[in-house]
Design a protein around this nucleic acid. Structure first.
Lengths: 195, 195
DNA sequence: ATTATCTATAGATCTATAGATAATGC
DNA sequence: ATTATCTATAGATCTATAGATAATGC
């Protein structure tokens, strides 16, 4: 069987990592614990030594799905590359991201289901929304911090909405039009007056 | 028992109407057929004389959840009231809409789940996205039709994303900030160049 | 001795169907 | 005769738990 403490930690991370991907692909109710454990090479009985309940897994897996941007931006920065807002926009609003929700943004894949989840999941989500607004704001050219924050909130909202809609429609041309149009306008928009 | 043809039509509409509301509140997997039929004052066995399958109900109920804007805009117009884009923005991005998904926009309540639904549901969704983009475009002041369409797509995306995020976070202040900020910027934004 | 994982299963769902019942509508 | 709805249930889930097994780690 094999079960050292180090092994358990690795197993735990593997379960969370798989769940995090599958939740984004199939939704928070998209599969059962047995199916998940099988993909992790385990059986259903072991699950509850890792999590108190299924909701516990949801909270942890959703939270681990967040923060992809920050990791990529940090990686790019430490690699010496400049990280422009235009690059972030193109990195988000494209067909590859649309077609691979499992490794993509958790908000555009799950926001309405998170809204119906328990308090813990929504608290962790609040924290991450705050972080991501902050992250986008630092990439914007606006000198005024409040202006940058406002524009970051609009940018983030447009990201999530455009991706949600682009995935929901079956018409490929319309889907691409949504992604392309929103990317273009976000790169060029300026508020008529700052607030 | 009672079952004239007229009665059946009314029953059918009642089932769809309840499902349409509950899907937006609880998600497409949020309740079973027995629970739904009970709320409609019926029992589970009658369901399949109305729908070939549960997915059939999903397609019909989701579709009936769309078009709320058009109905309201048309009503306002025929009532002689002017329908400005500012009014539409305030009508969408507010806390009352956020707290009552059952009677609100189906996209912000269900987009990611629709993305995982069958072809028929997604086809009907495409149609409605097209209609709503068109509707918003006609309310925008832009003379150039392509500019109006582009701005309508951004506005629509920002609506759906802002509402999805405002519902997903548990922090009330952050939630309100998202709605208010996006509403304000949408009222004032102008593209630096039209495309 | 402790515990990570396994097998097996209880109990509660859920979708869909079969067959009975009672009304409509020819 | 047809059919809208009912009761009852088959068969397939799904979450969570009980108890066995086999490894770790004192």
């Amino acid at each position: 069987m094999g079960h050292s403490k180090a092994q358990k930690t690795r197993t735990h991370k593997r379960i969370v990592s798989i769940a995090s991907k599958r939740f984004r692909e199939k939704g928070l109710a998209g599969f059962g614990i047995a199916e998940l454990m099988k993909e992790a090479g385990l059986t259903v009985g072991g699950f509850y030594k890792h999590f108190d309940s299924r909701d516990d897994l949801v909270a942890e897996a959703v939270n681990s799905a967040f923060g992809g941007w920050k990791r990529r931006v940090d990686a790019a920065k430490s690699g010496g590359a400049s990280v422009s807002i235009a690059k972030l926009i193109d990195d988000y609003l494209n067909a590859a991201h649309r077609d691979d929700p499992g490794t993509g943004c958790a908000f555009s894949a799950l926001a309405p289901e998170i809204a119906r989840s328990d308090k813990r999941t929504r608290s962790l989500t609040s924290e991450q929304v705050r972080n991501d607004i902050q992250l986008i704001a630092t990439l914007l050219p606006d000198k005024d911090k409040r202006t940058a924050r406002s524009r970051a909130i609009l940018t983030f909202s447009a990201f999530v909405g455009a991706m949600s809609l682009a995935r929901a429609v079956s018409d490929e041309a319309l889907s691409r039009e949504i992604l392309k149009t929103v990317a273009e306008l976000l790169k060029n928009f300026a508020p008529r007056h700052s607030t």
